[in-house]
């Protein structure tokens, strides 16, 4: 299997001299297509910084990030924005849905941004799979946290991105909904051959992944493959 994410000697330093903080120190790993990877570590271990780097949301101090063979930080700012929209799906702890758009519109948003008409059937299927059929005309404020996160997952999957990055996707959810979200992400990996990278401090969540990367003080300290898949 070819690698969809290739990270090489990635470093990020904030501040200068005495206030210098090394958030990432020469982190390097590859992720194969279709893998479900969890990045764990305590807060301040650099896992969020790493995810931001993966998503092209921040500039590394040194090192390269390749996604689908494309050197993310060699692209121009505008190209990177388009790349992000088409290739990377984001899921955040705080859902980040557009409050004035209903479920259907929120899910179709990435496509609308590209002036593409979402295929009605595909979106309907997606909404069905997400168990939101009766709520497709509801606004985010009328949904529970678990439902909102499912909408966010739908939005992340709408463009069928190569990779899905989830930043503490279950951080605001109770354990039943957390499990649900993780199952859904696993389903996406299987059904659409997607690659998912989840960061979490919850070991129960991480245990669901095929592979667990542990971060500590900006370094990758362990890389273990779980037992759920061959």
């Amino acid at each position: 299997m070819n690698s969809i994410i290739e990270i090489d000697k990635l470093s990020k330093t904030y501040g200068k001299d005495s206030t210098k903080v090394e958030a990432l120190r020469e982190v390097g790993f590859d992720v194969a297509q279709g893998e479900f990877v969890a990045i764990v570590g305590s807060s301040g271990s650099g896992k969020s910084t790493l995810l931001h780097m993966l998503g092209g949301l921040d500039h590394p101090t040194s090192g390269t990030v390749r996604i689908d063979g494309e050197n993310l930080y060699a692209l121009k700012e505008r190209e990177r924005a388009v790349f992000r929209r088409r290739k990377i799906g984001f899921i955040f702890q705080s859902f980040n849905l557009i409050p004035v758009l209903n479920v259907e519109e929120n899910i179709g948003l990435p496509l609308l941004l590209d002036h593409r008409q979402p295929d009605k059937e595909y979106v309907r299927d997606l909404i069905r799979t997400l168990g939101l059929e009766e709520r497709r005309k509801h606004l985010p404020s009328e949904l529970s946290g678990g439902q909102q996160q499912r909408v966010a997952i739908g939005r992340a999957l709408a463009y069928r991105p190569a990779i899905v990055l989830a930043d503490e996707p279950t951080g605001n959810l109770d354990s039943a909904n957390s499990r649900e979200v993780m199952e859904l992400l696993k389903l996406a990996v299987r059904q659409y051959h997607q690659t998912v990278v989840v960061i979490s401090h919850d070991m129960n969540i991480a245990a669901e992944a095929d592979r667990v990367l542990r971060m500590q003080d900006g370094r990758l300290v362990s890389d273990t493959r779980g037992g759920n898949r061959e």
Binding site: R128, T129, G131, R160, Y192, H193
Partner: peptide, 10 residues
């Protein structure tokens, strides 16, 4: 909730 027509795979 499995879509009636099985979702097209990649």
């Amino acid at each position: 909730h499995r879509p009636s027509s099985s979702a097209p795979s990649l």
